[in-house]
C-alpha cells in the first residue's frame, strides 16, 4: 500500500505585521515550520504503516521553495519513507487552484497512491481547499475533516466525519483523498534513531520540466484570485460610558442603562 501525505511549510508564528511603508506582509526573520495540522496527516499514515498487515510505504509531497525540504526531513524523521519537493520559480505566487494543479500532476507522476492525505488547513492562509481541489483533478472520492479512519477491507477505508451537529460514517474504496481533523491523533516526535535514519531516505526534487504541465495553469498566471489589499484588522472603537463609584453604585448605573436600552 502506498500513502502520500501532502504537507506545507508555514511561518513559525502567526504574529506577522504589515510593513507601514510597502503595506506588504513583513515576514522578515520568520523561520519556517511544518504546518502543524499536516503532522496529524503524517501520524495517521504512520499509524496505518505500524498496524496494517500489509507493507505500507509513506511518501511526503510538498510544493514550495527549497527550504521546504526541512519539513520533508522532519516528516521523514517522524518515520515517513521518502520525500518529494516540487520547486520551481514558475510555481511561485500560486493560489489554491494553481497549487492543487501542480500537486495533482506530481501525484500522477508518482503513480498509484492508494491514499492521499492532507491536513485540515494550512495555518497561514486557512483555506483547506487544496485537498478537495486535488481530489477533483484526480477524479477521486474525498473524505474531508476525517475524525477517525481505519482500513476496513481490501482497498477500503471507513471514516467518521464530524459535521457541525451530525456525525457521518463514510466508506471509500481506494484510491481516495482524505483530509484529517487535528483531534484525530497526537503526532509523534522524531526519535534520535529516526532522525539519523532520515538522512539516508530519498528526497526527490522535481522542477518544472520534470512534470507534465500546462504553463497557463501555473503560478500567478494560473491563479484566478488576486490579493488587492492586506491590512491589520482594527477593532471598531465605540463610545465608552464609564460606570463609576463603588461596585454597587456602578451596578445600579448599568441597570438603568440596560433598562433604557430595553435589554432588561
Amino acid at each position: 500500500m502506498k500513502i502520500v501525505v501532502c504537507i506545507k511549510q508555514v511561518p513559525e508564528t502567526n504574529d506577522v505585521t504589515i510593513d507601514p511603508v510597502t503595506h506588504n506582509l513583513d515576514r522578515r526573520g520568520l523561520a519556517g515550520v511544518m504546518n502543524p495540522f499536516d503532522k496529524n496527516a503524517i501520524e495517521l499514515a504512520l499509524h496505518l504503516k505500524d498496524t496494517a498487515s500489509e507493507d505500507v510505504q509513506v511518501a511526503l509531497l510538498t510544493m514550495g521553495p527549497d527550504d521546504y525540504a526541512e519539513s520533508l526531513r522532519e516528516g521523514m524523521a517522524m518515520g515517513a519513507d521518502a520525500g518529494y519537493l516540487l520547486s520551481d520559480r514558475a510555481f511561485a505566487g500560486a493560489d489554491t487552484l494553481a497549487t492543487g494543479y501542480v500537486i495533482a500532476q506530481a501525484l500522477k507522476k508518482i503513480g498509484d497512491a492508494d491514499l492521499i492525505l492532507f491536513g485540515r488547513q494550512a495555518v497561514d492562509a486557512d483555506t483547506g481547499q487544496v485537498g478537495p481541489i486535488v481530489a477533483e483533478f484526480l477524479h477521486q472520492p474525498q473524505i474531508t475533516y476525517a475524525a477517525s479512519l481505519r482500513l476496513s477491507g481490501k482497498n477500503e477505508v471507513t471514516a467518521e466525519r464530524l459535521l457541525e451537529d451530525t456525525k457521518q460514517t463514510l466508506v471509500a474504496q481506494l484510491p481516495a483523498v482524505v483530509s484529517v481533523r487535528s483531534e484525530l491523533n497526537t503526532p509523534r516526535y522524531p526519535t534520535p534513531r529516526n532522525i539519523q535514519l532520515s538522512f539516508d531516505k530519498p528526497l526527490t526534487v522535481w522542477h518544472h520540466d520534470d512534470l507534465d504541465l500546462d504553463d497557463s495553469r501555473l503560478g500567478q498566471a494560473g491563479s484566478p484570485t488576486i490579493v488587492t489589499k492586506v491590512y491589520a484588522p482594527k477593532p471598531v472603537k465605540r463610545e465608552l460610558t464609564p460606570l463609576t463609584g463603588t461596585p454597587s453604585e456602578a451596578a445600579s448605573q448599568l441597570i438603568t442603562a440596560l433598562k433604557s436600552r430595553q435589554l432588561i
Partner: peptide
C-alpha cells in the same frame, strides 16, 4: 489570514 492577525481583500 495568519490566524486573523491580517485581513486580505
Amino acid at each position: 489570514s495568519y490566524g486573523d492577525n491580517i485581513m486580505c481583500e
